[in-house]
Nucleic acid binder design. Structure first.
Lengths: 131, 131
DNA sequence: CGAACTCTAACGTGGCGTTATAGTCA
DNA sequence: GTGACTATAACGCCACGTTAGAGTTC
């Protein structure tokens, strides 16, 4: 498929997808004779994973590392020495996800505090205008 | 107080605080004879509110509007016609905070899905290496 | 006086959005 | 061949980080 269909499927802009290629995050399988980028279903899933990770605050480089580990863990053949190191990496990734998750929960509380602040201000206004 | 103490108290960089002044978000009360920025406790609280809002995804301009509304709602004298409009603004702000909050909850779920993905990959590795 | 602090100015970065111009596909 | 799609290139934006060099405070 070409870039247009890909972007429709994952709801990202063409600019974004091209930029991901520029930084080596999502590289097309090949090019058409005229130079059009050609993508497969694998690229769709990869972009969807990226979309999931993005709001957690990972940089594109971070996401590349995670995707790389996942790809290698999903490969059919892997040498035993690679497996050990890979498991360590996955563990590290999982830990940083946990940290991001904790940060998100703090942000939820911040949102609630802000809501309370806004409500209090509105309440104060109501009292004043009731006079 | 000078910018150093201010930044210590709110845990923001001097560059950040100066940039906030550049865009009109946090303007110092005055300057020393030699040109040093002078801040008060009000600036501390203002910056802390900003720190709370930032991770919710508001732009500096958005935050300026919210802070402006809060300041006006906290003022001692307000004309009745101003109060009505102000209450509307506060309502709008509260709604966008609610939207951000909902987005945060979706991101929490995304984090959990990602954790599951990473765990599954690690599990797969364990099985393979156990052979 | 001197150490610690602060000033402005300017360039760099990440993650794209937004034209502009030209070439490709079915 | 024609209308829709795609290519590269380049500049713009936000929210700062990071020097560099000179001035201020106590």
């Amino acid at each position: 498929m070409h870039i247009g269909e890909l972007c429709d499927r994952v709801a990202l802009s063409q600019r974004t997808v091209r930029y991901y290629e520029e930084v080596g995050l999502v590289v097309p399988e090949s090019r058409s004779k005229g130079g059009f980028r050609i993508y497969s279903r694998r690229h769709v899933t990869r972009l969807l994973v990226i979309k999931q990770m993005k709001p957690l605050g990972f940089s594109l480089e971070d996401m590349g590392a995670v995707l790389d580990s996942l790809d290698r863990a999903g490969a059919d053949e892997l040498r035993p020495e690679e497996a050990g190191e890979l498991r360590q990496r996955l563990q590290l990734h999982a830990e940083s996800v946990a940290e991001r998750r904790a940060a998100l929960e703090e942000q939820l509380e911040a949102a609630d505090r802000l809501t309370a602040t806004l409500d209090a201000a509105a309440e104060r206004l109501s009292c004043l205008t009731a006079l």
